[in-house]
Design a protein around this nucleic acid. Structure first.
Length: 471
DNA sequence: CTGGGGAGGGGGCCC
DNA sequence: AGGGCCCCCTCCCCA
């Protein structure tokens, strides 16, 4: 077959038997041929795998044996590539105890078909396994699935990319799509704690023995900037919508504090009621789906950690977004908020949101209740008797008598002494904008006033968006 | 430009 | 498992 024209990706070929001087009678678009050929080849390989024909690699996952082809695994997984390139052995066996056979089935089906069978129940585990196996495209699909499931991008809500957690969907990809992208150079990734045997010569015990003084899983959990897990961690910010008051970029709101809050509040003031309702719905959906995601955290996040003094392995929970591990599932759930951007604890006084109740409480007591017994001006220690509470908008702090006199009460705008012991949340406008932003309302109160508004001021809501927005 | 302090975020761990 | 506390770190503002 002669190539007679090169049209980029689409090349035209003469049919066999046609001489070059003859008028071409049939032309083939090789783009179609290529796709068809790849598809057929993949189907053939998949059939061979299912019939265990020419399989030269065994993967043992929690006791269940999977047969596959080395070259296919090599082309699809950075981890397998790393392992398989270590030696020319004819047969390679791999043992995994850190993800389930069902998960590996999904992974293997994807490798051999390009179809990734994701659901809300397996996405975390598949993503964790994919990060293990260094399959960046699978990680990307899982990320997109989670992103869509969390409805982070409200604007894309109506697009067909929006998925419900209750749905099961499939992502398709060309086979080995990611394989050329990852770890082309010297791989510095510590080997995951999979237990490998090469012609049964490298057993589990030998692996464990090699790292006997260092837990293998611990070594795998070392932070590696080249690790796809870390790439994912860096990309985790993509999961958040900066427009969304419920979700803020991790660290992005730090101490831009008032400014960002004010901007949010101002934007909120501009928004109409319909938009507010949309935000309410979006928040509710995100909170619900985050909860659903947490509820479906699979056992894959549990990895064998250090051995305790009784030589029993202590279970640790691995974050699917980064290399961090924690002892308790609750701590992982808490940690996940730094990836999902979920902030379920809104401050009633300033609308600022927090990932933890304790942070909200600390913020409220510091900012809105003037609990710190120190003069803001001269930094001297004050008591509840000597420290007068100055209110600036919803912000409250203490000043000593001397500083109050030095500044002079006349210099402090005192818009409303009647309302000084109002609950800070009630100082908010309907749209949530801080009153102090537009007309700085200064108030000086005494301790009795503070005592009156302490404690009861802190109204804590946990993802009760409707109530919050209706205030 | 720099150092100090405030505020917030996150991890570990106890209750 | 959740709540809470302690500690450390980072970021930002301000003098």
């Amino acid at each position: 077959m002669d190539m007679v024209a090169d049209l980029g990706a689409s090349r035209l070929y003469r049919a066999p038997g046609e001489s070059s001087h003859q008028q071409p009678q049939r032309w083939f678009n090789t783009a179609d041929i290529t796709v068809s050929h790849q598809s057929n080849l993949l189907k053939q390989l998949n059939q061979q795998r299912r019939q265990e024909l020419f399989c030269d690699c065994s993967v043992l996952v929690e006791g269940q044996l999977f047969r596959a082809h080395r070259n296919v695994l090599f082309a699809s997984s950075g981890y397998f590539r790393m392992l398989l390139s270590q030696g020319p052995d004819d047969t390679v066996n791999a043992t995994f105890d850190v993800f389930s056979p069902e998960t590996f089935t999904v992974i293997l089906d994807f490798i051999y078909s390009g179809q990734l069978d994701l659901s809300s129940h397996n996405v975390i585990e598949v993503m964790s396994a994919a990060s293990y196996l260094q399959m960046n495209n699978v990680i990307s699909y899982c990320k997109n699935f989670i992103k869509s499931s969390l409805d982070i991008s409200v604007k894309d809500e109506d697009s067909d990319r929006c998925l419900s957690l209750s749905e099961t969907c499939s992502f398709t990809s060309g086979a080995g799509e990611d394989s050329t992208e990852q770890h082309q150079g010297p791989c510095s990734v510590s080997p995951p704690p999979a237990l490998w045997t090469r012609d049964n010569s490298r057993s589990q015990s030998s692996f464990m023995g090699k790292d006997s003084d260092q837990d293998p899983s611990a070594s795998a959990l070392k932070t590696d900037p080249n690790s796809p897990v870390n790439e994912l961690s860096a990309d985790a910010e993509d999961l958040q919508d900066p427009q969304d008051p419920l979700y803020t970029l991790p660290g992005s709101d730090r101490r831009r504090g008032k400014g960002s809050t004010k901007r949010r509040a101002t934007n909120s003031a501009r928004s109409n009621q319909h938009e507010d309702l949309d935000i309410q719905e979006a928040r509710t959906r995100k909170a619900e789906k985050a909860e659903e995601l947490y509820a479906t955290l699979p056992p894959i996040v549990g990895v064998i950690g250090h051995f305790n003094k009784d030589s029993n392995p202590t279970m640790r929970f691995k974050c699917p977004f980064c290399t961090h591990t924690v002892k308790r599932k609750a701590d992982l759930k808490r940690h996940l908020r730094c990836h999902t951007g979920e902030r379920p604890y809104p401050c009633q006084a300033c609308n600022k949101r927090f990932t933890r109740l304790e942070h909200l409480r600390s913020h409220f007591e510091t900012i809105h209740q003037a609990r710190k017994l120190v003069c803001r001006k001269c930094k001297c220690q004050v008591t509840e008797e000597t420290g007068h509470v100055v209110c600036e908008g919803t912000r409250r702090y203490r000043m000593c008598t001397a500083c109050i006199q030095e500044v002079g009460c006349d210099d402090i705008p005192m818009n409303s002494l009647e309302g000084h012991n109002e609950e800070p949340a009630l100082l908010l406008g309907v749209d949530g904008e801080e009153e102090g932003d537009t007309k700085r309302s200064w108030m000086v109160t005494d301790d009795d006033d503070l005592a009156e508004d302490s404690g009861a001021d802190l109204i804590i809501q946990q993802v009760d968006v409707s109530d919050e927005e209706l205030q």
